[in-house]
Nucleic acid binder design. Structure first.
Length: 490
RNA sequence: CGGGGUGUGGCGCAGUUGGUAGCGCGCUACGUUCGGGACGUAGAGGCCGCAAGUUCGAGUCUUGUCACCCCGACCA
């Protein structure tokens, strides 16, 4: 089979889709807009899940689980939340099926209509705050720092594997606090946790910032996000953390007795990342040979491929390879010995590259004679012959090296494709090539909307770390105090 | 939901003016191979998305319908 995946393909979406399918990560299911996550794809998600879960617990959070179904009336309680989520949702209207009267198949039993429809959760703020009402009476009950790992459903018009599926896996943290300051600190803490995860584990640099009013989560006073650059120069929102103020507490009447004996509404946050991170991982690092996984998220770190002519030679190789495998495992690495005799070495090389395994060790008759192994790294595709007794140290060191190299490569790419401009014409030219733009904006929604209509670019965020500087809005020329991040986005 | 495209063995595709389906990959067996996706030989596998209609005859024409992909609008 010839190499078919290429990021030089005109259509980056197609490239991405092919890669997801060929690397055996996921496929479309029989259900519209839904996705089957295949074992290899799920193994990567599990690595992400485990690490994130660890980080949530380190910051004092605990896991819980809330219902999949939410009574429709809950959505009517928070006005601005209704705005945002009144649309694309799956609705349960009946609770029973029956045999059809013509004896051919099953129909919905019209007599089994629910009095109140249930919404399959698109996000859980409403049902969680309805529950928190019963949990909170005094400042002594606060804070509540709960996270849930769950699936949610949004009946999106247009879906794409991992980036936007009708059903997706995510985690959603929902916290309740006694003070505004504490809630804001939590919101900031969690966007930092996400950024650290993206950069240290996914090897994907991100820009942290605040969303504009237009892009803010429905019901939030403030939304922070991390934005990453994909290899086609487009932005992908990879995680969000919301400061919800007292909106949900007011909507669900969650009051508590303060230390001073007054009644006050609870302050809230919510934050989440989803299987979209898988899409980010794939699009940030992959190349023409397939996936490139950062070692810290690779389900398999090392694959060992034996090379031999006759089946009798395999045990001789295995004799050398198995101790090596054990040693590597003792150093905390996941090692696969690919001793399949049904495919040839060249095929295995290509297959493991497609799956993004960071390091490959090959060992054949030549190595047996010389006491060496061949070590190949996925990120650079470099191959080196190395004495057998140095292999373990070499591979262990490579893990860090590859992790750093992938991150730095992505960072360099982002730097090279991030531009600062004050000219609207140049602004449009840069967008057509793909990339991020730091430009001045007058702070109004109208301007933001117009730029979006004219260029398809949105304000991804107002980065936290940009300095104040006097300038003029890229579109209107009105005064601006700082540059914001513009890009076309997924 | 608007615009465009595609539905034919597991995958990717061809199929002429309508005449009863073919190619490549993959799969099975045997042999030679095995340090970058091997080669030869012999096989297996399809009521052409679904439903009506036109016709002596439909993969091909007509209508309807469904699914998927791409571009928008919506969104993580």
């Amino acid at each position: 089979m010839a190499k078919e995946v290429t990021n030089k393909q005109e259509n980056y979406s197609q490239w991405y889709n092919d890669l997801v399918v060929k690397a055996d990560l996921a496929e479309n299911s029989a259900v519209r807009g839904c996705m089957v996550i295949k074992p290899y794809g799920y193994a990567i998600w599990e690595k992400m899940h485990d690490q994130l879960d660890r980080m949530f617990k380190e910051t004092g959070h605990v896991n819980a689980y809330f219902p999949l179904f939410i009574p429709k009336s809950f959505f009517s309680k928070e006005a601005s939340h209704v705005e945002g989520f009144a649309k694309e949702c799956a609705v349960v209207t009946h609770y029973r099926l029956k045999n059809s009267s013509d004896g051919k198949g099953i129909v919905v039993d019209d007599d089994a209509r629910l009095e109140e429809e249930l919404i399959v959760r698109p996000t859980s703020e409403t049902i969680i705050w309805n529950t928190y009402k019963g949990w909170i009476q005094s400042y002594r009950d606060l804070p509540i720092l709960v996270n849930q790992w769950a699936n949610v459903v949004r009946w999106e018009m247009r879906t794409r594997l991992f980036l936007r599926t009708a059903e997706f896996l995510w985690q959603e943290g929902h916290t309740a606090h006694a003070t505004e300051a504490e809630a804001i600190a939590e919101t900031e803490q969690m966007i930092n946790v996400y950024a650290e995860f993206a950069e240290k584990y996914m090897a994907m640099p991100v820009i942290k910032g605040r969303k504009t009013a237009n892009e803010r989560f429905a019901g939030a006073l403030d939304t922070y996000s991390i934005e990453a650059m994909m290899q086609d120069g487009k932005a992908l929102q990879s995680g969000t953390s919301h400061f919800l103020g007292q909106n949900f507490a007011k909507a669900f009447d969650v009051k508590f007795a303060t230390r001073e004996g007054n009644l006050d509404y609870v302050w809230a946050t919510s934050w989440g990342v989803s299987t979209r991170l898988m899409g980010a991982l794939i699009m940030a690092h992959s190349d023409d040979n397939g996936l490139v996984l950062p070692p810290r998220l690779a389900p398999t770190h090392v694959v060992i491929v034996p090379i031999y002519r006759n089946p009798e030679q395999l045990p001789l190789l295995a004799e050398k390879i198995l101790p090596l495998k054990k040693e590597l495992e003792a150093r905390g690495l996941a090692v696969k010995f690919d001793d399949r005799d049904t495919v040839k070495p060249g095929f295995k090389f290509a297959e493991h590259e497609l799956k993004g395994i960071p390091v490959r060790i090959a060992m054949g008759p030549r190595d047996m004679e010389n006491g060496t192994v061949e070590i190949a790294r996925r990120d650079t595709l470099e191959k080196k012959t190395c004495p057998m007794n140095e292999a373990v140290e070499k591979v262990v060191a490579l893990m860090e090296e590859i992790q750093d190299h992938i991150y730095n490569k992505a960072l360099e790419f982002r730097k090279a494709n991030t531009h600062t401009t004050d000219s609207y014409r140049e602004f449009q030219e840069i967008l057509d090539k793909g990339g991020f733009i730091m430009a001045h904006w007058d702070g109004t929604s109208e301007t933001e909307e117009r730029i979006k209509e004219e260029t398809k670019a949105t304000i991804r965020c107002i980065p936290f770390d940009t300095p104040e500087e006097e300038g003029k809005c890229i579109l209107t020329g009105n005064p601006s105090k700082r540059r914001v991040l513009f890009a076309r986005a997924y």
